[in-house]
Design a protein around this nucleic acid. Structure first.
Lengths: 161, 161
DNA sequence: CCATTTAGTTTGTTATACAAACAATTTAGT
DNA sequence: ACTAAATTGTTTGTATAACAAACTAAATGG
């Protein structure tokens, strides 16, 4: 038997690895694939002292300057968690709080030049490593995969409105 | 432009959502998909007071009784981290340390009945929610997706031997 | 102009992860 | 057999991460 128990693992225990296991179910393949990708993100993040949440933060700030609360919503975190997240990022000079025009309470969060630089290099590494994974498919298959995955992502995911 | 900056986000900021964005690149689709899945795992885990690592732990223990060190390797954690992980799981009665036959230093870690019960219910919920996501594809497309994903997972992922 | 929201921070608690130092065993070398 | 070296886990100290509840300051609505 080779399905269920593998679902939660990044890598199978023995080296009767992915192939020795035949075709995975959609569910298993989705879960395992997510761990493979997250593990790449985590490893490259760690190389640059970035957690996955920080990587996501920088990704969001790439073309936006949201308020703390907007960040909290988009990251799915409590606002108090975002305070700490931004504190640490700001201490490292990756990000800065700027005053908002109309509201003297809130800030907008903006990425600094240093932050952009870091995103650029880390992003390139991530791109490279994921491309390595994707290289096991032909160009046509990759396109097909991307098309299917895009539709999967489009699904409401059983949460918010 | 709609590719790069979206890569690190779970959900796009505005609701010009996934569709409004056209086809994602393989890289973007992989990263986003991984966040969708991880978010499901995280949410259901949270419902049962389980972190994603704990979910993985229970998944591994489903059909194995590894030593602490084996667990550390398979989870990609330091051995000292595993001590804490197992301590907490043991305190909750999900897991227990058992003596190993030949080595008086080490233990094997075994899931308890309570642990199995929890895995069963949480696993079913995860399965359901991921199936909801997968439901946006036809059965044939799901099979196709699973086939492609299985091959992606088979790729060495640029780490260990 | 006061009552209520709203935006963020502070405080306290818990989980998580690592590294370095340590204890107890096992394994090797001779 | 007996010591030296390696292995298995735990402990200790530090940092990040996340939450919830209490709190401050500013905006909004009657």
């Amino acid at each position: 038997m080779c399905t269920y128990s593998k679902r939660m693992q990044v890598k199978p225990m023995n080296n009767e690895a992915a192939d020795g296991c035949g075709e995975l179910s959609v569910i298993d393949s989705l879960v395992q694939l997510s761990f493979v990708i997250q593990s790449i993100l985590g490893r490259i993040g760690a190389d640059h002292d970035l957690s996955i949440v920080q990587i996501r933060l920088l990704g969001i700030l790439r073309d936006r300057e949201p308020t703390m609360l907007q960040l909290a919503r988009h990251l799915g975190l409590d606002k108090s968690s975002v305070t700490g997240l931004i504190d640490r990022a700001e201490r490292r000079g990756l990000v800065e709080r700027t005053a908002t025009p109309n509201d003297r309470r809130g800030f907008n969060v903006r990425m600094t030049a240093a932050g952009r630089e870091l995103v650029r290099t880390a992003g390139a590494e991530i791109e490279r490593q994921i491309m390595d994974v994707a290289a096991s498919l032909s160009a046509a298959e990759r396109a097909q995969f991307a098309a299917l995955a895009t539709r999967l992502i489009g699904a409401p995911a059983s949460g918010e409105p």
